[in-house]
Nucleic acid binder design. Sequence first.
DNA 1: TCAGTAGTAGGAAAATCTTTTGCTTGCAAG
DNA 2: CTTGCAAGCAAAAGATTTTCCTACTACTGA
Lengths: 156, 156
Amino acid sequence: MSRRFDPDHTDRAILRLIQRDAALSLADIAKEVGLTPTPCWKRIRKMEQEGVITGRVVLLDPEKVGLGVSVFVAIETGDHSAPWIESFATTVAKMPEIVECWRLGGDVDYLLRVVVPDMQAFDTFYRRLTAQVPALRKVTSRFAMERVKSTTALPI
Amino acid sequence: MSRRFDPDHTDRAILRLIQRDAALSLADIAKEVGLTPTPCWKRIRKMEQEGVITGRVVLLDPEKVGLGVSVFVAIETGDHSAPWIESFATTVAKMPEIVECWRLGGDVDYLLRVVVPDMQAFDTFYRRLTAQVPALRKVTSRFAMERVKSTTALPI
DNA sequence: TCAGTAGTAGGAAAATCTTTTGCTTGCAAG
DNA sequence: CTTGCAAGCAAAAGATTTTCCTACTACTGA
């Protein structure tokens, strides 16, 4: 598997477009970047094969589906062993409410974002999490009041 | 604009599928949820019109495009006035490196995730941010060591 | 009670549009 | 030159979208 991919100006233009709207037709993308559909399609396929493009998804409005509460959970663990780290990752993978989980450097070991319908559901989640994960030293939950910005588009 | 949408079992099944892979054809989605393409398409179109589905996007591998560094920036502000909040939101919207920005309740006022190529680029960003935003009381940057989990799929 | 009817959801087939393939051309590096 | 990309064109393959129709449910007013 190749470590890097160096997109040229046209590749970048394509990526910038479809990162924002993947419903655009090849004809539209091609027109925008100054190509015809075929070479444009070949570039996209290549970037899919190389793993630059990891997927196509639809995004939902969390409010509209009753999942308007996001909570950030900062975790400090008392156990930094490889087995603990591995089992924590497995637990995280299995909990669909956890939409993001980052291992950080510094005082906080992990930062999670948890998506739930309401505070009560968060409490239920919280109990489940703390019951399942051993050796938690400190867990700090912060509720999101407002999603000021949230994009999947990387600054390419 | 309707505040909520209550998806039935079939709607949810469709959403679960296309939240993970929006490249599936209608025929495949329909087969999976036990419908034919037409009613399936009508449901998807309705959810798009109602704003449940906010968009279709392509996801990129940050490493592959040289944007492998994510930094979480926790901000405490000294100014909680409406004009400050508004101008901060405008600044955030204009900086493409900031991919997420949440206003929180509690000790930390804002939490950002910033995506950059390397530490040096983060430093450049950091200087720009602190120069542009007034009244910052405390800014704490935490570097992500590992993306344990990151999904756009809501737990529906 | 019981037609009549409006609203909702599903389906088949046709029309339209997009994607994909195969082939050709042009250009630049060796 | 000639070899190797990258682009383009045109046609085939495939997907989406539309149209039209049926079944079912719930409500309406003799």
